[in-house]
Amino acid sequence: MYTQGLDQKGQSDAKGDGLEAAADLAAFQKRVDAEEKIEAKDWMPEAYRRTLIRQISQHAHSEIIGMQPEGNWLTRAPSLKRKAILLAKIQDEAGHGLYLYSAAETLGVSRDEMVGDLLSGKAKYSSIFNYPTVTWADIGAIGWLVDGAAIMNQIPLCRCSYGPYSRAMVRICKEESFHQRQGYDILVELCKGTAEQKAMAQDALNRWWWPSLMMFGPSDKDSKHSAQSMAWKIKRFSNDELRQKFIDVTVPQAEFLGLKVPDDECVLDKKTGHYGHGEIDWQEFIEVIKGNGPCNKQRLAKRRKAHDDGAWVREAAGAYAEKRAAKAA
């Protein structure tokens, strides 16, 4: 997981510095239009580079922070098989984070810098991980909905114009689709189970549905950077298009489980073939992005504590390496 359109605020990425030669820009755009991959050593507009750094690092941070809500149920997973599957999933997410930080590093930013921005609160990550996982069914709902929404966002990114990012996405998407199936499988089992288990599943869907729809980012009319990202072929579909796709795929899956999506307006329009949806509470989204979600402070505090607790270990590793190098010299 999990890219998200966080681009509702006026960031300066798209400005560029005005000094780039028109000829270079035109040549670059021509390559992009021809679906050539841009590689790390190629010339690229500064704004393109900054947009990618922001998007890829946000994506990496989301993978890392996303480990926390799921890790919350690792010690309490209800069977050894489920525990192993969940652990493997969380391990995958850590791997995604690592992989994405490396992709961002090709653009000339260090992992330390990116992690520093996460810990200071400057960098954003997907708003979805600021919601709590309160029952085991939430683990199913995250796999099904959150990894599901991530796949919708990320499949087009496999064709992103920036080579290292697009290649990272190909690999990551394969794993995300496993995660989605495994999450759905948790809910299948719960919905076949006792009345309490089924109620647990419905409750999870009720809580995770709307935040999952928000993962696609602001509605197209409020999304500032979409047009430029589209022209650069970083983005291929608009936020609303992807959201609609997700709803159309997911609602029948909920019906198969015998669960109801918590939106009375979510009915199939036979003419268009699409499901409708009610008004999304964008105020909630903005609050969560600003840091006022149920778990924002907890998530960052845990990451900071891990980082701080590791300070003496990093120093030791550094000192040991120096001693070894001195001995070898």
Binding site: M67, Q68, K83, I90, L98, K305, D309
Partner: peptide, 12 residues
């Protein structure tokens, strides 16, 4: 060891 997941300072 599972108790330590998501609490490591370094990704590796």
């Amino acid at each position: 060891m599972v108790e330590l997941v998501a609490a490591y300072p370094e990704l590796e």
